[in-house]
């Protein structure tokens, strides 16, 4: 009902105000945010939380459209093909918008780097290098490496699937540490990985910090390092992976907003500024802080673009060093 009223009101304002107003002022109708995941996951929730604030700031509905599938390609292509007028935006993450464009470049029917522009980073998620507490007594990263050296091929790590960033992180880590571990992928994601660790199907994984919090309190899982720029204040005793002797290992899991490449600069400015404003709203910061997430919008539009180019370059390097065979 509310939606109908809104639609009627906006139709009315268009009729009264005339088309000129609609063209001058962005946004003058509801904006669609495409999310490449089913509703309920972290990226979906981030876009809904920001969408709520954008509605308050810009006075239009920001409607999330979930277009899951094909490693994010379906959603990215829908956004990239939309009219570049600022009424179709996209929120993706390091998997869909850095790994997918490189790993599955051939599967795109658009040119990702030409057709998609980065608008601003939104948030960064810390991860833990985490181990099970049943059947394996490992308290530090060094313990884990020693244990794996004594039991080559016997330690199993879980990941969110072949080619996911927790998979790459563990591959890079085991190479750097010079150990051999067995990969048990679980395509059901974080909840499945936690279960794998608890029931003993796997013993170690790179896992979102917030998701694992309850199992850590229950004593079932033990974080041995955090993948973040600094230690988390909730876990002052857990060193960063860099402090534990592995600098440069592990992915900073970001979420970021994108738009079709030809979206006009003034429109992008409006969105960018609104996000900056939204990021300062206490309610939004609190909602993210509860999930241990830091809200980290880019400094400028230009910085958002160079930052994303660097991310792509980083992943190009990682994927060429760690060859993961994706059988076609």
């Amino acid at each position: 009902m509310k939606r109908l009223t809104l639609a009627l009101l906006s139709a009315l304002s268009l009729a009264v105000g005339g088309a000129a107003v609609a063209q001058d002022k962005y946004p003058s109708k509801p904006v669609k945010i495409v999310v490449p995941y089913a509703p309920g996951g972290a990226t979906d929730i981030t876009s809904r939380l920001f969408g709520e604030q954008l509605k308050n700031i810009l006075g239009q509905q920001f409607v999330v459209e979930n277009k899951a599938g094909a490693f994010g390609i379906l959603g990215i292509e829908e956004m990239a093909r939309a009219r570049p007028d600022g009424y179709t935006l996209f929120v993706g993450n390091v998997s869909t918008n850095a790994i997918t464009p490189i790993l599955f470049q051939k599967k795109f029917s658009i040119n990702f780097e030409r057709d998609v522009v980065s608008v601003t980073r939104l948030a960064i998620y810390p991860s833990f290098l985490i181990t099970t507490t049943s059947g394996m007594d490992v308290k530090t990263v060094k313990d884990l490496v020693d244990h794996a050296k004594k039991n080559p091929g016997k330690v199993r790590y879980s990941s969110a699937g072949v080619g996911s960033f927790p998979h790459y992180d563990m591959e890079v880590f085991t190479r750097r540490a010079g150990v051999d571990m067995n990969h048990i992928p679980n395509k059901t994601g974080a909840a499945g990985m936690i279960n794998d660790l608890v029931v003993g199907d796997a013993q170690v994984a790179v896992l979102n910090s917030a998701s694992s919090a309850a199992m850590i309190r229950a004593g079932k899982l033990r974080p041995i390092a955090v993948i973040a720029e600094q230690r988390l204040k909730e876990y002052p005793d857990v060193p960063t992976l860099a402090e534990a002797g592995y600098p440069g290992v592990g992915t900073l899991h970001w979420q970021s907003m994108f738009a079709p490449a030809n979206t006009p600069k003034p429109v992008l400015d409006t969105i960018f500024n609104a996000i900056q404003q939204a990021a300062k709203v206490p309610a939004l910061q609190e909602a993210f802080a509860k999930q241990l997430v830091s809200v980290r919008p880019s400094d400028t539009l230009a910085e958002a673009v160079t930052w994303h180019k660097n991310e792509l370059a980083t992943w190009r390097k990682i994927t060429s060093e760690v060859k993961i065979d994706l059988t076609e």
């Binding site: 309920g40 996951g41 929730i45 909840a191 279960n195």
Partner: peptide, 26 residues
């Protein structure tokens, strides 16, 4: 365990996460 039986439950977990409640044995 935080393991949803279906898509609706996955959404419920999402709703809990917003409030900072992580499913867990405790």
């Amino acid at each position: 365990l935080g393991i949803p039986g279906n898509a609706v439950m996955a959404l419920m977990i999402g709703a809990l996460t917003i409030h900072g409640i992580q499913p867990g044995p405790q």
